[in-house]
């Protein structure tokens, strides 16, 4: 049996926006410039699961901008609607950039090859041929995703620690009910797209063994530490847990 948790949209506690407040918002959105967020030009839909719990799977709406040809930065929302919750962010880099990362960093990144090739990652509203042109590139990238708001377990506020998220790497991981739900809402067929994308190439060097949580799992831990006296440089501590 599949849980139906990923489509939970808990209501954020709080009063309706007051008129005075919304007037300030309206004035600000007219007067201020939004340079960084104007660079966002792409809406990508895919699924993430928690790096320590594959059974918790979340529909993730990525709104991405290119920093350059080798890197995108994305805001992640739980829906494509105006009242969507900002639940996380993702950085997407080419294989070449990924390979420059220190080994201790690589497990935090996930491969995109399977997500693209299996048809589950898509650009809502973009016709297949145009979409595939871009996804040919995405298939060769790695992503680092952090979620800050666990809407899937019903949190009505962003509670607790940031969570490292992972992406699908093979058949049988994604809940069929979750897949069906998205396919229905967006009139897409993952199976058909899988066939359309069969020609695509993946990572030139194959999926790095240290990527995708090094094939194990990851969790974040909060540590209470002594505050550094101001003006003192950080001591050179290198923590290794793996």
């Amino acid at each position: 049996m599949d849980p139906v948790h990923a489509t939970i949209h808990p209501e954020v506690p709080g009063e309706k926006t007051k008129i005075g407040t919304s007037l300030v918002d309206t004035a600000a959105s007219a007067i201020q410039s939004f340079g960084p967020t104007k660079q966002i030009h792409q809406h990508l839909c895919a699924f993430h699961f928690y790096a320590d719990d594959m059974t918790r799977q979340v529909e993730a709406h990525h709104y991405c901008g290119h920093r350059n040809d080798e890197m995108r930065q994305c805001l992640i929302y739980d829906s494509p609607d105006a009242d969507a919750r900002l639940i996380g962010l993702e950085y997407i880099v080419t294989e070449d950039l990924f390979l420059t990362l220190p080994d201790s960093e690589k497990p935090l990144w996930h491969s995109h090859e399977y997500e693209v090739k299996s048809g589950v990652l898509f650009l809502p509203g973009v016709p297949g041929p145009v979409e595939r042109k871009d996804l040919e590139k995405v298939a060769k990238t790695y992503g680092k995703t952090i979620h800050f708001w666990q809407v899937d377990k019903g949190d009505d506020l962003p509670l607790g620690l940031p969570q490292v998220m992972m992406a699908l790497t093979r058949d049988g991981q994604l809940y069929p009910s979750l897949a069906k739900d998205v396919e229905t809402r967006y009139s897409v067929s993952f199976e058909k797209e899988r066939q359309n994308r069969a020609y695509m190439e993946g990572l030139a060097h194959g999926i790095h063994p240290k990527a995708n949580a090094a094939g194990v799992g990851l969790k974040t831990v909060l540590r209470e530490i002594e505050c550094k006296p101001s003006g003192q440089p950080e001591p050179s501590v290198h923590r290794v847990f793996v």
Binding site: K153, T220, V221, L222
Partner: peptide, 26 residues
């Protein structure tokens, strides 16, 4: 930090990935 004189760091640790559904969190 003001009252408790403590700061926070975050670590990422290796752990076992859960692959069986635990309904208790819902």
């Amino acid at each position: 930090w003001r009252q408790h004189k403590k700061c926070f760091g975050v670590d990422v640790e290796s752990t076992k990935m859960k692959i069986e559904t635990d309904y208790s969190i819902y």
